[in-house]
Design a binder for these strands. Sequence first.
DNA 1: CTGAAAGCGCTAACAT
DNA 2: ATGTTAGCGCTTTCAG
Lengths: 342, 342
Amino acid sequence: MSSKTEPTIHDLAKKLNISASTVSRALNDNPRISQKTRDMIKAAALELGYQPNTIASNLRNRKSNTIGIVVPLINRHFFSSVISGVEDVAFAAGYNVVISQSNDEGEKEQRIVRSMFANRVDGLIISIAMKTTKFDHLQLFAGKKIPLVFFDRIVREIEADRVVVDDFNGGYKVTKHLIEQGRKRIAHLTGPLNLITYSDRKRGYKQALVDHHLEVDEELIIVNNLTRTDGLMAVQQLLKLKNRPDAIFCGNDTTALSAILHLKEIGIKVPEEIAIVGFSNEPFSEVVTPSISTIKQPGFEMGQKAAQMLIEQIETKEQTATYETVTMPTELIIRESSFLKR
Amino acid sequence: MSSKTEPTIHDLAKKLNISASTVSRALNDNPRISQKTRDMIKAAALELGYQPNTIASNLRNRKSNTIGIVVPLINRHFFSSVISGVEDVAFAAGYNVVISQSNDEGEKEQRIVRSMFANRVDGLIISIAMKTTKFDHLQLFAGKKIPLVFFDRIVREIEADRVVVDDFNGGYKVTKHLIEQGRKRIAHLTGPLNLITYSDRKRGYKQALVDHHLEVDEELIIVNNLTRTDGLMAVQQLLKLKNRPDAIFCGNDTTALSAILHLKEIGIKVPEEIAIVGFSNEPFSEVVTPSISTIKQPGFEMGQKAAQMLIEQIETKEQTATYETVTMPTELIIRESSFLKR
DNA sequence: CTGAAAGCGCTAACAT
DNA sequence: ATGTTAGCGCTTTCAG
C-alpha cells in the first residue's frame, strides 16, 4: 500500500527537478513552455500515473466546466431526448454534464439544485417539477447571475432564457383534428395548471372549440397529475356523465394509454365510440393497439438549443440582461386511436 | 453590481469579529461551539446569503460525498429503475448522485468515467457499454482502491463487488416455458457474447434444450446488437431457413417488439405460429398486442443493493480485499406472445 | 522560457 | 469554547 496518495504536479516537479508551475503549464499546453519540455513532462506524467485533480483546478478557476440538467423523470422519452441533445452540444464544447431527476417532487428538486449550486456548476438547464411552487432555489442562480435556461416547464416569475414547445398550438391542433373527425364533445385531461405547458395546451383546446363553434363544457375538463391511475380515474369520471364525451384529449401519453386500456376492457371501442389523443409521443404510443395519436415535441433539438443558449451565456462575459425565449414547433401524429377509416 | 464574489466564511467571520474556524465549525454543527454562537452564526449566514462552497470543502476533505453511476442508456426502464434505487439509498445516506450515460459507446464511457474520477467521486456504480473492450478507465478505480460496484453488465477481469441478475436461470426459465408450450425449434437472439449477461442467458437456453432432449441448432442462434433494426434483420434471416423456428427467445424487449411487429405485418400469427419472449420487462411489453412475455429484473432493488455495497465500502476504512457478488432473482412474466390458450 | 509565491474557500490539528 | 496556522492541488501574476 505505502502512503498511497495521488501524485500531484508537485511530485512530478520534484521528480523532474523543475517547478510546479512549469508542470501545470505544460499539462495545459501553454505555449510559453517549449514543446520539448512539454513532451517530457507529459511522458513523466503518464509514467507516474498522474491524474489531474479537477476539484483543485475548479476551486482555483472558480469554474467547473460542468453544466447541470434537472428533469422531472429521466425515463420519460421526451426528457431523455432533451438530455441527449444537451450532452451532444455540451460535450462538443468541452463541458461535462451532470444529470439529475426531481421525481416531480419540489423538495428533491430543491435539494438537487442547491447541491448543483454548491458544486458550482457553470450553468443550469431545468424543467421544473410538477409540485414546485417555491422558487428560491432557482433564485439562487438567477439572483447571482449564474446562467440558467428553462425548458418545457418554465417559470414565469424568473427571468431567464427559455426553450419551450408551442403548447398552445399543440393543443389547438389536437382539438381541431378531433373536430375534423366529427367529434362534438371533446373532453380534456390536463395536469396542474400552474404549469404553463398545461395551461397553454388547455388554452389551445378551448380556442379550437370556440373557433369551430363548439361549446366549452367545464365538466369535460379534468385536472390531475396525469399518472396512470389518474388517467383511469378521469375516464371513469367522464363515463359517468349523462352526456358522455366522444373524444378525450389527454395531457400525456401515459393517461392516453390508461384510458385506452380501460375502454378496451369495458368494451368501448376506440376510436369509434371515443377517440383518444395523447401528448409527447412516448415510444409505446406507436406500438399499442390501437396506436395512439399524439403530439411530437422535438426533444433532442430542444436540448441542443438549451445547451447552446446556456453555453453562450456562460462564455459571454458581458451579462447582457436580455433573455430570449425560443419556441419549438410541435407535430401532430395521427394514429389509430383518433382516426376513423371509413 | 459591485465586486460580486460569493461571501465566504471569512466574510462572515470578519463581520462577526470571530475566526473563520469558528464559523466553519458552527456551520457544521460541531458540538465544540456553543449553541448560542452557532445560532448566531447561522443567522448571520442566512442574512448574508452565504452558500457553502463544496468544491473547497471537497478539496480539503479529499472526499466529494458524491457517487457516480453510469449506465448504457438512461431511458431504458431497467436502467432508470436501477438509478432510482441507487438514489434512494444514496440520498438517505447523505450522498449526491451523478448520473451519466455511455450510449453504449466505449469511448464515451471512457470519457465519463475519467471525468468522474477527476472529480473525485467517492465511488462508482457502473454497467458497462456493449462496445467496451478496454478497461483501463475502470482500472483507474480498481487500481487506486476507489470503491467500485458493477451491476448487470459486469467485467470479469476486474475484482469488485457485483450485483447481477441470474441470467442463466432467466434464460433457462424462458426456454423451459417455451418447451412446455410445445415448441420444438426455439431460436435465440442474443447480444455480444463478451457481455456475461448475454452469454449466461444463452447458456441457460442451451441447458434447457439439453435437459429436455431438444437439439441445439447453432443456425437458430443469432448474435447482434439487439437494436430494433437488428431484431428485424434477425427475424427475416430466421424466416428464410428451410426449417423455420416455432419460437424466438429474444435478448431484449426491443427486439421482441420488432419481431412481433414484423410478423404481424407479414401475416404470421404470434404466438400460434411463432411464439416470442423478450427480456427486461420494458413498460411497452405489457401494452403491445400481443403483449410480450418477458423476464422481469428487479432493477430498483439492484440499485439499492449496489448503493449499499458501495457506501459500505466507502465508509469502511479497512479495505478488506474481499469482494462479493450478489445475484438477484428473475421472474418470468407470461403474456400473450408466448401463451396459447386452447 | 521558467520559477517563486500567493491564494481559491474550507477544515483540522494544535494551541489557548 | 474559540483562535492560529497550515495546507488540500492547482493556477497565475510577477520576476527574472
